[in-house]
């Protein structure tokens, strides 16, 4: 389970002064469910997820990931989290197998357990055809599979996906969305960010709409449709975000 409590992140910018990238966000993601963080570019999605993955430290507030505090126990949190985004690239000079093994070792797996785990993942994801190929020689789809294998190697109970399908072709994107569903079906806690409405409709059990670092609306898709009297998610999103989006531009 993920429990964000008043999570905030401020940055100092020489020209713009203090920037509130994330402003006092609280939400809960349950195991076996997918929580979707929907927002425009620059809304604060990536910063929020980076704080949950302990890549960034919150300025205020905190979050508990399976009971472990992201501020107090960042390394313990990372050990139970799989983090995947289009920004998490692969080491070009390592082979697909070396890449996955490297992260397995960093996650504390011993050699016997690692071998078993890697063989299992490579078989499941149908990666044996390119396991000895260097990552810089892989196709986009192969790279995504290797990234998935990298996040899965230590079998984390919590998965964090930051715009995982951004810039991918439809076939590769489908591999990712299928993988996200599979994670939920295996009882993992899943949170993912996107600005693609169709992905949210297909995948999310719970949805949070974020803009200017604030969580403006939250609920299941049915609850949001009821609350805003709109069926189309895009219309709901515009209703929620538009007033804040204007003020953000004015700033």
């Amino acid at each position: 389970m993920i429990e964000a409590r008043g999570l905030s992140k401020r940055f100092q910018d020489k020209k713009r002064g203090e920037i509130r990238a994330v402003d006092n966000i609280s939400f809960v993601c349950q195991p076996g469910r997918i929580y979707g963080l929907l927002g425009a570019n620059g809304a604060g999605k990536t910063t929020t997820l980076r704080m949950l993955a302990t890549i960034l430290e919150p300025t205020d507030g905190t979050a508990l990931v399976c009971g472990r505090d992201v501020v107090e126990q960042p390394e313990k949190v990372r050990a139970i989290v799989g983090f995947l985004s289009t920004a998490t690239a692969l080491y070009p000079r390592l082979t697909a197998q070396e890449m996955v093994e490297y992260f397995g070792r960093l996650n504390g797996l011993d050699e016997a357990a690692l071998k078993k785990r890697v063989d299992d993942i490579f078989r499941r994801l149908e990666m044996n055809g390119f396991r000895d190929r260097r990552c810089d020689k892989l196709s986009t789809g192969m790279k995504q599979k290797t990234s998935i294998a990298r996040t899965l190697v230590h079998d984390p109970p919590v998965m964090i996906f930051d715009e995982p399908t951004n810039g991918l072709d439809i076939m590769t994107a489908r591999t990712i969305t299928a993988f996200i569903r599979e994670c939920r079906d295996h009882g993992k806690t899943v949170i993912f960010s996107t600005h693609i409405m169709s992905e949210v409709e297909k995948l999310c059990d719970t949805l949070g709409i974020i803009q200017s670092g604030k969580l403006l609306a939250e609920g299941t898709l049915a609850e949001l449709r009821d609350k805003y009297s709109e069926h189309d998610l895009e219309e709901i999103f515009i209703k929620v975000v538009a007033p804040h989006y204007v003020s953000a531009e004015a700033n």
Binding site: T88, L90, F103, G108
Partner: peptide, 14 residues
């Protein structure tokens, strides 16, 4: 530049 910094920072290594 290669985008692997975020990848490694997401691992449990200190």
């Amino acid at each position: 530049e290669r985008g692997t910094m975020e990848t490694i920072l997401s691992s449990p290594i200190s």
